[in-house]
Simulated assay, not measured.
Amino acid sequence: MMKAVCLDQPGRISLIDLPMPMPGPGDVAVRMDYVGYCGSDLTSFRGLNPLVSYPRVPGHEISGTVAALGDGVSGLAIGQPVTILPYFNCDACHACRLGRPNACRNNQTMGVQREGAMTSTVVVPVAKVIPVDGMRQRDLALIEPIAVGFHAVRRSELRAGETVVVLGCGVIGLGALLGAVRRDARVIAVDLSADKLKVAGALGAAETIDASSEDVAARVLELTHGDGAEVVIEAVGADVTFRQAIDLVASCGRVVYVGYAKNPIAYDTKHFLLKEMDIRGSRGSEIADFNDVIAYLKQHPDAGDRIVSRVVPIKEAAAAMEAWDKDPGGFTKIVVRIEAGKDA
C-alpha cells in the first residue's frame, strides 16, 4: 500500500492508503518526489471546479524518478529524473486531428477528471514521461504550470519589443511573464499582492502595478504613451480582469485568456470592433512548451527559489491546502514533498 492525498469532498482533504500500482506493457512506474498544488486543486477543494468529482487524488505538477519499466519500454532508466505530461487526449476529436491535443474535447487531466499524482507512485504510458536531467529535483514540479504560461505567450504571437500586460502573478501568470521575457518583450505585471509583484519584478517584469491601490487602466496608458499594450494575457479568471483585458489592449492588439471565469461575462462589444482586436483562448500546454520551460529553468536555476513559497511533507499537505484556502494571496506556489529525505 502507499499514501495519497485525497480530496474527499469540498472542504475536506485527508491522507489515505491506496494499492501500489504496477506497470503493464508500455507503461512506466514513476516514484513521486515532489508535486505542486495547482489553482485547480484549490478550486476543487472549494467545490468550485465543475470538472472534478469526489473523492479525487489531486496533483499534476510532477517531479519524479523512474521506478520500474513495463515490457517493451526503452529509452528510460531506473532512477532517471522525469516529469509527466499530465493530459490524456482522445486522438480522435477535431482538435486532436489538427495536432493540438491540449485542446482535446475529451481531455482528462491528472488530478481533475482522473486520479492525480499526489501519492507515492503513479503509472503512465511511456509517451507521457519526459526525462529531465541537470535540474534541481524540486523544480521539475514547476515545469507544467510555467508551461501553461509559455503556451499563452505562444498563442499571443508576442514579438520582441512589444509590451504585454500580464494580469495575475500566480504561477501561470509568472510563466507568461517568463515566456514574454524570453522573447525580449516588455512586461507590465498586475496583481493585488505586493509580495507577488516583488517576485514578478525579480523575474524580469519591467513595471509592476498594484491593483489594490492603483488605477490599472490609467497606469497602463501612462506606461504605453496612451496606446495600451500590444498584448494582454489574463491569468486570473475573474469577471473584472476578463473585462479589464479588453480595456487595456491597444488597437489591433491581442488578448489571450488563460484563466477562465466561473460566471458569464457581459461585454460592451463595440470595443471588439473599434479596436479590431484579436481575442484568443489558451488551454494547457504542449510538449514543445515543456521543452522550452526546461531549457529556460536550466539557464535560470534561481527562478525556482523565487517562485516556490513553501515546501511541505505529504503529512502536512492537508494543512497547507487549508492555509492556502484562507490566504490565497499569501502563497505563490506550494510544493508537497512526497519522498522523505529529499532536498527542500
Score class of each variant (00 low, 15 high):
Leu167Met: 14
Arg155Ile: 10
Ala127Asn: 14
Gly75Arg: 04
Gly173Arg: 07
Val66Leu: 13
Gly134Pro: 04
Asn107Ser: 09
Ala77Leu: 05
Ile130Cys: 10
Ala180Ser: 15
Val126Ser: 13
His60Tyr: 12
Val165Tyr: 07
Ala152Phe: 13
Ile130Glu: 13
Asp133Glu: 14
Val153Gln: 11
Leu174Val: 08
Arg138Gln: 08
Leu140Phe: 11
Ala67Phe: 04
Arg114Ser: 05
Ala152Gly: 15
Gly116Phe: 03
Gly75Pro: 02
Ala127Leu: 13
Gly175Val: 11
Met118Cys: 12
Asn89Tyr: 06
Thr83Asp: 06
Gly173Asn: 08
Glu61Met: 06
Arg105Ile: 05
Glu157Ala: 12
Gly99Ala: 02
Leu85Thr: 00
Gly64Asn: 04
Asn107Gly: 06
Gly161Thr: 12
Ser156Ala: 15
Val66Ile: 15
Gly161Gln: 13
Gly168Val: 08
Ile130Ala: 09
Arg56Gln: 15
Ser74Gly: 02
Thr65Arg: 15
Glu115Arg: 04
Phe88Ser: 03
Leu69Met: 09
Cys169Ala: 13
Pro145Phe: 06
Val123Tyr: 11
Ile146Glu: 01
Val124Tyr: 12
Val132Glu: 07
Ala147Tyr: 07
Phe88Pro: 03
Gly168Leu: 09
Val181Ser: 10
Gln80Glu: 15
Leu174Gly: 06
Leu85Ser: 08
Arg105Ala: 15
Ala147Asp: 08
Thr163Asn: 10
Gly59Val: 02
Ala117Ile: 03
Arg136Thr: 00
Gly75Cys: 06
Gly70Trp: 01
Phe150Arg: 02
Gln108Phe: 00
Gly70Phe: 03
Val123Lys: 07
Gly161Cys: 13
Ala68Ser: 12
Leu51Ser: 09
Val57Thr: 14
Gly99Thr: 00
Asn106Thr: 06
Gln80His: 02
Ser74Leu: 00
